[in-house]
Design a protein around this nucleic acid. Structure first.
Ligand SMILES: [Mn+2]
Ligand SMILES: [Mn+2]
Ligand SMILES: [Mn+2]
Ligand SMILES: [Mn+2]
Lengths: 223, 223
DNA sequence: AATTAATTTTAGTCTAATCTAAAAATTATA
DNA sequence: TATAATTTTTAGATTAGACTAAAATTAATT
């Protein structure tokens, strides 16, 4: 099998399709890809045609797309690089976790396989990135552990923060200020019917209330 | 002053022009740029027009180009990133020095200034890259120290290897096999008139003979 | 089932970067 | 200095990726 590398743009599309495939395993819509890629649906159609020719995705007009095994491997490889670089930026270089996503967005496209594997070793084969997302192994396997959100807990239930769904700077800064960082023990004290906001305590201390939208973006392991 | 970032291609052109400017301070020819960039002269003409519009170079038809201060800063920034990443690859990740140039060629285009400065600090503010080339400081200053080649020495003169002119894998592998690595003490024993090849000793031990072309690609500090 | 709404695709245009072939300018040489 | 050789620029085409506007298809509502 010859190795033909994909362009930055192609890699970003593959990554977007891979991300969307978790919620839409039977087929990812043109519009949803356009939204993630911050582009127009017509541009997506052009690109998916090209990716289909390269056998990276399965595409039939109007039917949505799925990744082929080749495409999945390519997508996961980019995800692996992204998350390993994020670990490097935070743990080696001392970046804050809310400041690494954009840089990793560039670093993830650097080609060398040897580089990725040496970086992985250098970092001590980390399992999770700074946002709690699992790092795929060099074979392309990912072990997801995050299926429950803080918003899924009922009053008096508790859990540990294991990840964030939204990696935007503003969200990360907000939850850091609230001490809702990875590893924090959260207990739901009360849920307000009106807007589904909840008052919570962290590590045993009452800290106030957070909106439903915030609770939906925090992954929890129930205790 | 607004910060408008340059494309990979523009950065590579600026780097090429900067490199050629050392030998041609009064103006770099279209053809010489084409050679370094491995492209056609007509493509160079198109690009230099664009770089001139962006005030990165001075360009008058048929006259050759020079970097503006803005262009010089941009070029040196890329060089700085290239060399710092090479140090990281060799010293942190354990790459061989003959295997880092291509990877650095990609890494040099990652944008963040904060990244470069944190990397610089992480590496202990190195002065030279693995090939002996000086690393520009964050202000854009470069202190060149390499003006003499091994081929400039006369018989019975000696010096220390401080850098290589050619960073190709094959050259680096050859001189490593010859133990002609950075820091090696070289003494010229004899120069053959016929082809200007020289027999040398390294660290006091006679090692045989090298061609003039090899000697021309080794920077030396005379002792 | 028919109509409306939403989604998706097509057609045509644009920009960046490249190329070939030909014209223009410069440099070297007789 | 006139001619030839070399270098550089222009003209015109191509490709990747994106966009707008319009057509085609599918989904949702009467
Ligand atoms: Mn990216
Ligand atoms: Mn992350
Ligand atoms: Mn480069
Ligand atoms: Mn180097």
């Amino acid at each position: 099998m010859q190795i033909i590398s994909n362009s930055f743009t192609e890699e970003n599309y593959l990554k977007a399709i891979h991300k969307l495939s978790r919620k839409n395993p039977t087929g990812v819509s043109t519009n949803s890809i356009a939204e993630v890629m911050e582009t127009k649906a017509s541009s997506v159609t052009d690109m998916v045609k090209k990716l289909a020719v390269k056998k990276l995705i399965n595409y039939k007009k109007y039917q949505g797309v799925t990744l082929t095994e080749k495409g999945r491997k390519a997508a996961v490889s980019v995800v692996r690089k992204h998350r390993l670089w994020e670990v490097f930026l935070v743990h080696s270089l001392g970046f804050k976790w809310d400041n690494v996503h954009e840089i990793a967005e560039e670093l993830e496209h650097v080609q060398s396989d040897e580089l990725v594997d040496k970086l992985d070793k250098y970092l001590g084969f980390p399992k999770y990135d700074p946002h709690g997302d699992p790092i795929p192994d060099s074979e392309g396997n990912i072990t997801y552990h995050k299926d429950m959100c803080l918003s899924d807990l009922d009053p008096s239930e508790a859990g540990v923060v294991v990840g964030v769904k939204d990696s935007s700077s503003s969200f990360l800064q907000y939850i850091e200020k609230m001490k809702l960082i990875l590893g924090a023990k959260v207990r739901v004290e009360e849920i307000i019917d009106f807007d589904r906001s909840m008052s919570i305590s962290i590590n045993g201390k009452l800290v106030g209330s957070i909106s439903e939208s915030v609770a939906k973006n925090l992954y929890i392991k129930r205790t």
